[in-house]
């Protein structure tokens, strides 16, 4: 029963490849932008005024990119809305549907982050000839933490809209 249930979750919630490619591209481009700005910040480190204004742009960019990712993930999840409803009609409990949703979301985010990171590494190797990336790790962590936090808030804010799917 457990095996069949997990199999069904995986089969019913199998991720859409085009959505993952799209998300991977968005992630990688955003990571590149973050790294590029971080590089600029280091270059202008001595000019405090310029560095501060760049920090502001940097923060805004992160906020915009997080919003765009949330919109994309929401779009992907909405595409699956019909399926969640079908499962409910056929006898799935709200807990099962929530597990499906979380698993689906988790797979999308992890696969996209991995895909984005690989793309980023490949692209950064090529671009490294022109730009020097420094202090990338904290930027990456910040990016992931903000995304995760916003996704959590977003999920709970929109729970009441998902009456159908439990």
């Amino acid at each position: 029963m457990i095996k069949l249930t997990l199999k069904s979750i995986w089969e019913q919630k199998g991720i859409n490849s085009s959505s993952v490619v799209l998300l991977s591209l968005v992630f990688s481009v955003q990571l590149l932008l973050c790294a590029w700005l971080e590089g600029i910040l280091n270059i202008y480190n001595e000019d405090i005024e310029k560095a501060n204004s760049l920090r502001l742009i940097f923060t805004l960019l992160i906020l915009v990119s997080v919003t765009s990712i949330i919109t994309l993930i929401n779009y992907v999840m909405n595409k699956r809305r019909n399926e969640f409803r079908t499962l409910r009609l056929c006898g799935a409990t709200p807990t099962y549907i929530l597990a499906c949703k979380l698993l689906h979301l988790l797979v999308i985010v992890i696969v996209s982050l991995l895909g984005g990171s690989i793309l980023f590494l490949l692209l950064s190797k090529i671009l490294n000839q022109h730009y020097k990336f420094n202090g990338l790790f904290p930027v990456y962590i910040l990016f992931v933490v903000i995304t995760a936090a916003e996704l959590t808030v977003y999920h709970f804010m929109h729970r009441k809209d998902e009456k159908w799917a439990g």
Binding site: L4, T5, S8, E11, Q12, N82, E83, R85, T86, L87, L89, C90, G91, A92
Partner: peptide, 26 residues
């Protein structure tokens, strides 16, 4: 059992796959 105006099916799946779904929970 419920039949809906907008069918309530999984569009990307085959007819057979859609009919298997009730058995997952049975």
């Amino acid at each position: 059992s419920i039949v809906l105006q907008d069918f309530g099916l999984i569009p990307s799946r085959t007819v057979y796959d859609n009919l298997v779904v009730p058995f997952y929970f049975s």
